[in-house]
């Protein structure tokens, strides 16, 4: 038993591979034009050092990023378009997340514009001390709300993958039901030859 435990402990210490589980997910939010997010595995762990590609709906690849040790990545949007983040952990796990254009600030050029154009400079020059323009206030409010909403969205995203007890019980119920069905069918199949042999015996 001790030997078995030792082998197990050895195996556990050797293996600290990139997080592995059964479902990979990507989560990202936009705060201003900066999109930050991370890849994670449904029951726990982050997708470390994995490739993330950023694509537009028309298939243009904007960038290929890598997640850091915390599974995080960041990207600054240059256009106001849907951004699709595809994370490939390399072992068959692939996940995508879409940041809708509506989540990005409307100061960015539209999807049709060349992505190389930098965001228009914020209208800071014209504002005097203690006097902020309505556009600035709106941007600040939006950023503040995005900050506040992020944990909530993370929680909702993670909750979608929670396995509930009723799922487990439902699955077990299905298996029991199938077994019952198989029983019924096999009983049906068996009873016919038995019935005929019983009749033969009765004839004798």
């Amino acid at each position: 038993m001790r030997k078995r435990l030792a082998i197990l402990a050895l195996a556990l210490t050797i293996c600290a591979p990139p997080a592995l589980a059964h479902k990979l997910k990507v989560f990202a939010t936009a705060i201003g034009a900066e999109i930050s997010g991370y890849g994670y595995f449904a029951p726990g762990g982050r997708a470390q050092d994995s490739a993330v590609s950023v694509t537009l709906p028309d298939g243009r690849v904007l960038a290929t990023l890598r997640t850091n040790a915390e599974g995080e990545f960041a990207f600054v949007a240059q256009t106001r378009a849907d951004h699709v983040f595809t994370l490939d952990a390399g072992d068959g796990h692939v996940a995508t997340y879409r940041i809708a254009a509506a989540e990005l600030p409307d100061t960015l050029p539209g999807a049709g514009a060349a992505p190389a154009i930098a965001a228009t400079p914020a209208p800071q020059a014209q504002t005097a001390k203690g006097d902020v323009s309505s556009a600035e206030i709106r941007a600040m409010v939006e950023q503040g709300v995005a900050h506040q909403l992020r944990p909530l969205r993370e929680q909702i995203d993670a909750w979608q993958e929670k396995v509930w007890l009723h799922d487990v019980l439902g699955g077990l119920g299905y298996i029991i039901g199938l077994a019952g069905l198989a029983y019924g069918l096999s009983a049906n199949r068996r009873s016919k030859p038995q019935a005929s042999s019983a009749m033969k015996e009765a004839r004798r």
Binding site: C15, A21, G45, Q48, V168
Partner: peptide, 13 residues
């Protein structure tokens, strides 16, 4: 598949 074991920063099942 629901039985997870923590391995390093992650878990396996």
């Amino acid at each position: 598949s629901l039985v997870h074991f923590p391995v390093g920063p992650s878990s396996v099942h």
